[in-house]
Design a protein around this nucleic acid. Structure first.
Lengths: 116, 116
DNA sequence: TTTTAATATGAATATGTATTCATATGATAA
DNA sequence: TTATCATATGAATACATATTCATATTAAAA
């Protein structure tokens, strides 16, 4: 009966998919990166930094909300090595360190604007 | 003093970044998409489906865990219009509907494997 | 029509996460 | 050294999310 062929096709597909499935560890890490991009405030921070480094005050100004919340989000992005920081006088300047991530954000931005 | 120029440079940068900042609504939507990719089980489901449609039983087999958990995650992916489904006999076959998302996952997979 | 197979759903629980407030830190300026 | 400015941190709260278990749904088979 027809279902048997389909069944075999699907099993074959499943095998292929499992073969090229990344390790649990890698999948976990991919998930963590996407999670870092899953909150509006963090996305805004990254978009604000895409033209170059900014101090916390300016970042706070750019995304609205209070300074403490921004600092907490900056920490998450830094812990994920998506941004880095350096001191300059009294200010701490943050900047993008992982440009792969920015590529992904740009891609996603394009898809959103052009295709939906 | 040197800090003044830097200050102006940064204000200018901030202005430029804000100018090309997507709307809150768009940023929100980007965040939602990334959130859908932020859990290992969902990523695994999408990777498993990247070779073609599969029924829930096979998906469950592919990612481990129990059927109910998989159904819940399938629902989230479907609500986000990342996957779709159709019935075939007794089975419900799920498949990718948003190939943009798969491009993003592939990109992220490459970055993970090659550059870190 | 009744039974069975495959999947979906709801409630409960546990865990994770963002935000706020108050305060600590740490470098600089006085 | 002391005071001040910019940022970071911790605790508390409120909200979101994943997972499990038990059960509902629905199409197909008997």
């Amino acid at each position: 009966m027809k279902n048997c062929d389909e069944e075999e096709l699907h099993e074959e597909r499943l095998r292929r998919a499992l073969d090229k499935m990344p390790s649990d560890e890698n999948i976990e890490e991919m998930g963590l990166r996407f999670k870092a991009l899953s909150e509006s405030s963090r996305l805004k921070i990254l978009l604000a930094l895409s033209d170059g480094e900014l101090c916390v005050e300016h970042i706070t100004e750019a995304i609205g909300g209070n300074q403490s919340a921004v600092s907490h989000q900056l920490r998450i992005l830094k812990d994920n090595r998506i941004i880095k920081c350096r001191r300059s006088g009294k200010k701490i300047l943050y900047s993008i360190s992982d440009w792969h991530i920015m590529t992904i954000i740009e891609l996603s931005k394009e898809h959103l604007n052009c295709n939906e």
